[in-house]
Structure formats: structure tokens, C-alpha cells
Write a protein that binds this DNA or RNA. Structure first.
Lengths: 131, 131
DNA sequence: CAGTATCCGTGGCGATACTG
DNA sequence: CAGTATCGCCACGGATACTG
């Protein structure tokens, strides 16, 4: 607990709150929803993590993400590319080589991923300790 | 670009990579998937954010989260409670007051949320700038 | 290798109505 | 106020087969 700020006790609900609760709170929720709209789902972040280790080809990404199917990988790659988080490059060689890589914008997710990863590790420890 | 580390060029795939790619990469993905399993979906994090401002009653949470329905709120609160991220308290007063609040474990998500929020704000700016 | 096509089930999620 | 009940859509996501 930090410093106590002004409190309001709502006479109808008996809830104690600060004056700005509503606007502050909704204001925090909206950007998180924006982020969630782009990142949520089972596969997007795993794919981004895989590519954060360097450019990779379709088959190799598939190998590194447990249980993903070709269809999901294909679909998610397309969406991530549309959001400018990854880039698809066709190398004009023989045989043709297609490579996926992170964009600079994709790299801006690194801290988000790092925090999620730390929390996940922590959470798994907690679950295992309980059972 | 940082310092260049040892690289391997796969003779079959022409992909350049570091020696530990596979294990490192999958090892990073798994905890993130653990976190996602608990947090992903449209409403869990918004609910947690709402409660991070202080204990609240059902109706008040509903008011602060745009577009959530009673049914979803009810269902998500139950799941969050099962995962020990929030607590449901029935105050033995008249009238009976039911209050939801964060657990200490719920508070451990603060940094995750903060990073998501920062990214979301940043992302919205970027989108608006493009159109 | 790098995908696409097709089929299909489950459940996430919404709308509305109702209850103690 | 604090939910539950019911209905129903459709997107998420899996399985399998196929293509250039």
C-alpha cells in the first residue's frame, strides 16, 4: 500500500473508490484491448518468438512450435505480415527460398514477451508446487 | 544489430542460424504458452485491470469494461477465481454485498499488463498515423 | 519444401430473458 | 444487485489430403 488518496464511499453500493476510478480504469483497459486484438490467440506470440531468434523458413518455424499445424501457421503468418510484425521474403535463387523474419516493429514486442515469459515460468512453478 | 555470434548455414535449407536455436526457442515458447492459456481471451486482463484499482462489485466492473455482457463477466470471474488471480468475498451485511478483489498473485501480473498497455498505446498511435 | 483445400467440431462470445 | 438460463452464430482451430 502506498500513500492513501482521497476516497469516496458510495452510499448506494458501499464501495470505496478514488474519484477517477472510472475514467482511469477504462482508459487503461482500451490500449490493452488494442494489443490483445492483435496478439491474442494461441499462435501469434509463439511465432514471433521463433522469429526473434532469426529469419526462418516455413518448415523450420513449424518444427519449433509444438503442435502447430501447417494451416494455422500459414494463416497466422499472413495476419502477422498484414500487421507489419513480420516480413516474408522470396529469395530469387534456385531453388526458390522463402524466408520469414521479424520487422523492426515486431521487435518492439520484445518487452511484452519477456514479461509474459517470466510470468509463465513463475506460474508453472507455482502450479507444480501445489499439486 | 549487435555483436555477431557463431552462425551455422544449413546446407539443405540455406537458413543461417545459431547452434542453440531449436532448444532455446522452444524453451522460450512454452512458458509464454502457459501464460497465454490463463490470460488470453477478450476479457480476463480487462477484468484484472479493473480490479487493480480496488475491490469492486459485479455491476461496477461491468460498467467499467466496455461491451462486456453479464454472462461473460460471470464466467470470466469464475475462471479467474479458480486460478487464484482474484477473490470473491461475500460481506455478511444487510443487504449482502459481494465484492471482487485482486489476490496478491493477481498483482504479480502488473508488469505484464503495463507492457501490454504501453505497446497498445504505441500501436494505436502508429495505426492512426498511417491512415 | 511451402503451402492450399476441404471438412468439421468445439467453444468463445453475444443477445435476450429471467430469478432470488 | 448479482447473477443464471437459453439460444445461436461463427471463428478458432484440428485432421487429412492435395499441389506446384
Amino acid at each position: 500500500m502506498e500513500a492513501q488518496t482521497e476516497l469516496i464511499i458510495d452510499p448506494d453500493t458501499y464501495i470505496t473508490r478514488t474519484p477517477l476510478d472510472h475514467s482511469e480504469c477504462t482508459g487503461m483497459i482500451l490500449p490493452v484491448r488494442d494489443a490483445l486484438d492483435i496478439l491474442s490467440g494461441k499462435w501469434k506470440l509463439p511465432i514471433i518468438i521463433a522469429l526473434s531468434f532469426g529469419a526462418k523458413r516455413f518448415g523450420q518455424i513449424a518444427k519449433e512450435i509444438p503442435n502447430i499445424t501447417d494451416k494455422m501457421l500459414s494463416k497466422e503468418l499472413r495476419e502477422l505480415e498484414m500487421n507489419d510484425l513480420i516480413k516474408r521474403t522470396v529469395h530469387d535463387s534456385y531453388p526458390v527460398v522463402i524466408e520469414y523474419s521479424m520487422t523492426p516493429y515486431g521487435h518492439s514486442l520484445e518487452k511484452v514477451i519477456e514479461e509474459l515469459r517470466k510470468w509463465g515460468i513463475q506460474h508453472r512453478k507455482r502450479i507444480l508446487g501445489k499439486e
